[in-house]
Design a protein around this nucleic acid. Structure first.
Length: 860
RNA sequence: GCCCGCUUGGCGGAAUCGGUAGACGCAACGGACUUAAAAUCCGUUAGAGGAAACUCUGUCCGGGUUCGAGUCCCGGAGCGGGCACCA
């Protein structure tokens, strides 16, 4: 019997699908639409196993939904702007565009080897002017709608590379590339007003019922809504008021100091003629922003000498906090709240540490249950519930009641109000880089910031750039930025900042609906396809990309480019692909390909024969060399083997381990299934034979197995339990393999039915093999166009059931009886079993619990 | 520090309405076929006792609810993830 030749067969069906445009779709179908999308790849060079896992899952869903009768959109594109292309330009002297497009060509070919059901006619690359043209249009529309603005802000500045760095690119206070100590600089930056939607972005999370709970929680925390109050303190001997934000207005009578951010306007004003304070402010700014730096940084304050009056000073006795000293403190952030706080040491740990350090009073205002006004605070602030003390009109109230009472009183006195505060900040998108979408703005000395007129879009990147000096090549370009002002026709300059690459990926799912349109989105197409019904990708994008996309969709809605707010109706976050790690005796990482495992589990280097130590399994990464090249696997075993293994064993949301043994297991199954279909094919009924009226027992049993499998695989795919679906398919295959003859009592017909069903169930996972088997059984249709099989419930019901007999909850016997047996008869039968009687041991039966068709539990 | 998740054989994992723990796969072991190997096929495989029928113990640990708990509740440990000078 001939072995299944994956390489030839896969190439054959891939070209058939391509020639017949099997997966190309339009908007005019009668079928309901279904949009399946996997996060598009960055063209880094070659595809990796993470891509294979991601796109296999998406393809299972896409092929399954197509079989279920949906008009399925399943597109692919390239997230093609970004730093690595510029790094390659600097290191390898190759133009970013050339590097990127050549990577795209390589990766497209690799992806095509996987046999994905993708509509390649919709392919896009974000670095192509056809794409970023429309991104610039969106930017200008958002600008007009007030959703884009420019402001000065503090950024991480790398003085060597002369660029702004994202927080993630600052490691231990140093630039990740240059190693230079990062400075904080105030720069003019473009921002997207994501905070315009903060309440809605938070509330709408509740309706995303097909998103993982975890991701919704992460976004919720990121948006960070808190309820509190703004309170104004008057500066003693001045006209100005200082406003603070607090979530604990109830503790206002426990206040003992006020602290300002180093970047607070008042701080800056004071520092102007106070050298000591000015030095302190500089010191604060030098403090690293890394987690570690913050952890280690001492809480420092600088006493400005200023005092503020407590809002209720008139009510407070001479011993109370009528006046508070004003400090500048290194732990107060200008970006959160108002950049100023009042400190209540008794009920906030950080305030307590600060108060102890600077000898400030600590007054208890919340007494823990059972304690009174004389309760004293030691080294630990009390943050629990209790009743108010030392707080005049709040005394005796519980914390929550005191909060509302205080807010009400502040409002009545005009001293403050209850407010909601968000942690979420506007999205700074300016990057001083070449390989990104140019911001379509012209700076005119007389007109200010002028949008590039529609008919001058796109603002394209110049090709002739150099990367031989630090900074933004667009700045160094001799002519590119010199233009005339569209408004007044005098000399002006282009904006040389480009946009954060997260902007590119914030709307690509919409562009896929009408990828060749001369506007950002064709409304009939986006209205038809969006939202994405199933989005699949790594959990590492749980916050940024997914939040930005949710913002963008709202902004596109507001500017008329779409008619919905939520881009992704369903989201699935997949786990990573892991592999064992290997190191040689010198501690250098070794590729799995260079390792040979011995039977005892030890490992040696293939070439040198030197012993290699086996480390724990970690997510595949180039730096640890624990990577396996997907095309290598596809070349040796076929794409179907790789796909099948990806789906086997591990639940898709969890990390999986890639093993050679697992791959060969998948390959063996592929061969086994092929042999099974060939061996039974000549015993099957003809394709068009009508269903017999009678079936013998083996035929009924085979049909039951087949229909049970159809039902559970369908359910498993619907619920993203691919590992279970795989197990069910193994079971049916095993069952099928044990039957030796198919020639009587309707068995030939049942065999045809079961084989067709099995092939259709396997199709989303191993489409090439399935297509080949389909044709081997004499079908002349394309399996990719065939409907999903329907499970017939009446064939699944079993007439015989197994009843478990327990005594005091312990298994003692199993009975095989007819379905729906009378409870008393069942109990009698159970009580006649020797093992049951032995377990009862002559004791009196207290009661018997009977669960129909399942269990009898005798309690003694 | 706050929030969230996970913990089941040698391994990945099934069992999620509270009702047979270990489906399915991998690995291992034994056997058949073969001059031999590969491939394939058959069998065993949670632990302990027993010739066997069977019995006992078992789902991270300690309690609890229940006729019955991997599953529900309380407390704890370990691992992983998110957020964090957030006022």
């Amino acid at each position: 019997m001939s072995r299944y030749n994956a390489r030839e067969t896969e190439a054959k069906w891939q070209s058939v699908w391509s020639e017949q445009k099997t997966f190309e779709v339009g908007e005019t179908s009668d079928k309901p639409k279904y949009y399946v999308l996997e996060m598009f790849p960055y063209p880094s060079g070659r595809i990796h196993m993470g891509h294979v896992r991601n796109y296999t899952m998406g393809d299972v869903v896409a092929r399954y939904k197509k079989a279920q009768g949906f008009n399925v959109l399943h597109p692919m594109g390239w997230d093609a702007f970004g730093m690595p292309a510029e790094n390659a330009a600097m290191e390898k002297k190759i133009h970013p565009a050339e590097w990127t497009y050549s990577n795209i060509d390589t990766m497209r070919e690799q992806l095509k080897l996987m046999g994905l059901s993708i509509d390649w006619s919709r392919e896009i690359a974000t670095c192509h002017p056809d794409y970023y043209h429309h991104e610039q249009k969106l930017f200008l529309d958002f600008l007009e709608a007030g959703l884009v603005y420019k402001k000065e802000s503090w950024v991480n500045w790398d003085p060597v590379d002369q660029t702004v760095l994202a927080n993630e690119q600052v490691i231990d206070g140093r630039g990740w590339r240059s190693g230079a100590v990062v400075e904080k600089r105030k720069l003019s930056q473009w921002f997207f007003r994501i905070t315009a939607f903060n309440e809605d972005l938070l509330d709408a999370l509740n309706d995303l019922d097909r998103w993982p709970e975890r991701v919704r929680l992460m976004q919720q925390n990121w948006i960070g809504r808190s309820e509190g109050a703004r309170v104004t303190f008057d500066i003693t001997g001045g006209d100005d008021g200082l406003e603070v934000y607090t979530t604990r207005p109830d503790t206002l009578f426990g206040a003992s100091f006020m602290a300002l951010s180093a970047d607070h306007p008042l701080t800056i004003k004071l520092a102007a003629d106070n050298a000591e304070l000015s030095d302190f402010v500089d010191e604060c700014r030098r403090t690293g922003t890394s987690e570690e730096a913050i952890e280690k940084a001492e809480k420092l304050g600088f006493d400005t000498g200023l005092k503020v009056k407590h809002p209720f000073a008139d009510l407070i006795g001479p011993d109370g906090p009528r006046e508070l000293p004003v400090y500048v403190a290194n732990f107060v952030l200008m970006e959160y709240g108002t950049g100023a706080i009042f400190g209540c040491p008794a009920h906030d740990q950080r305030d307590l540490d600060f108060a102890r350090k600077y000898g400030l009073p600590v007054t208890t205002v919340v007494a823990p249950p059972g304690e009174g006004a004389d309760h004293t605070i030691g080294d630990e602030a009390y943050t629990g519930p209790g009743s108010m003390v030392n707080s005049l009109f709040l005394d005796g109230l519980a914390v929550d009641d005191a909060k509302s009472a205080m807010i009400e009183r502040l409002r009545a006195d005009g001293r403050g109000e209850g407010t909601v505060n968000f942690r979420l900040r506007d999205w700074g998108v300016s990057r001083q880089r070449y390989w990104g979408c140019p911001v379509p703005i012209i700076h005119c000395p007389s007109c200010g910031e002028v949008p590039v007129p529609q008919d001058q879009l796109p603002v394209t990147l110049p090709d002739d750039v150099t990367f031989d000096k630090p900074g933004n090549p667009l700045q160094h370009h001799p002519t590119w930025r010199h233009v005339t002002c569209p408004a007044c026709d005098t000399e002006a300059e282009r904006e040389t900042d480009t946009m954060d690459t997260f902007v590119d990926s914030s709307w690509y799912f919409a562009r896929f609906c009408s990828p060749h349109a001369d506007v950002p989105t064709e409304r009939n197409a986006v209205d038809y396809w969006l939202p994405v019904d199933q989005y699949i990708g790594g959990v590492e994008h749980a916050i940024l990309h997914l939040l930005y996309s949710r913002f963008f969709t709202r902004a596109m809605h507001r500017t008329g480019h779409a008619a919905l707010d939520e881009p992704f109706a369903g989201l699935f976050t997949q786990g990573m692909v892991c592999h064992e790690t290997y190191k040689d005796s010198k501690g250098r990482w070794v590729f799995p390909d260079d390792v040979r495992k011995n039977d005892d589990g030890s490992a040696v280097h293939v070439e040198t024969g030197e012993a290699v130590s086996v480390g724990r399994s970690e997510s595949m990464s180039k730096s640890k060399k624990n990577v396996v090249d997907p095309t290598d696997i596809i070349d040796r075993f076929g794409a179907d083997t790789a796909r099948w293994f990806m789906l086997s064993d591990s639940p898709p949301e969890r990390d999986m381990e890639w093993t050679e043994a697992g791959v060969s297991g998948a390959w063996r199954f592929m061969q086994r299934l092929w042999r099974l279909i060939l061996s039974v094919s000549d015993q099957m009924a003809a394709q068009d034979a009508s269903e017999p009226t009678e079936f013998n027992e083996p035929a009924i049993a085979l049909r039951r197995e087949a229909h049970k499998t159809i039902a559970s695989v369908t359910e498993d795919i619907e619920r993203f339990r691919f590992n279970r679906a795989v197990a069910r398919i193994y079971e049916l295959t095993n069952y099928f393999s044990e039957i030796k003859t198919f020639d009587q009592g309707g068995m030939d017909w049942a065999a045809r039915e079961a084989a067709d069903a099995l092939i259709k169930l396997v199709n989303p996972m191993m489409p090439h093999l399935a297509e080949e088997m389909w044709h081997a059984l004499g079908h002349d249709t394309l399996l990719a166009d065939q409907p999903w099989p329907a499970a017939r419930d009446e064939l699944i019901v079993e007439n015989t059931v197994t009843i478990v007999v327990q005594v005091n909850g312990k298994l003692r016997a199993k009975l095989s009886v007819g379905r729906d047996m009378d409870q008393q008869a069942l109990t009698d039968l159970a009580m006649s079993e020797a093992t049951v009687l032995a377990a009862i041991g002559g004791k009196a039966v207290r009661k018997t619990v009977v669960v129909p068709n399942r269990i009898v539990n005798v309690v003694v």
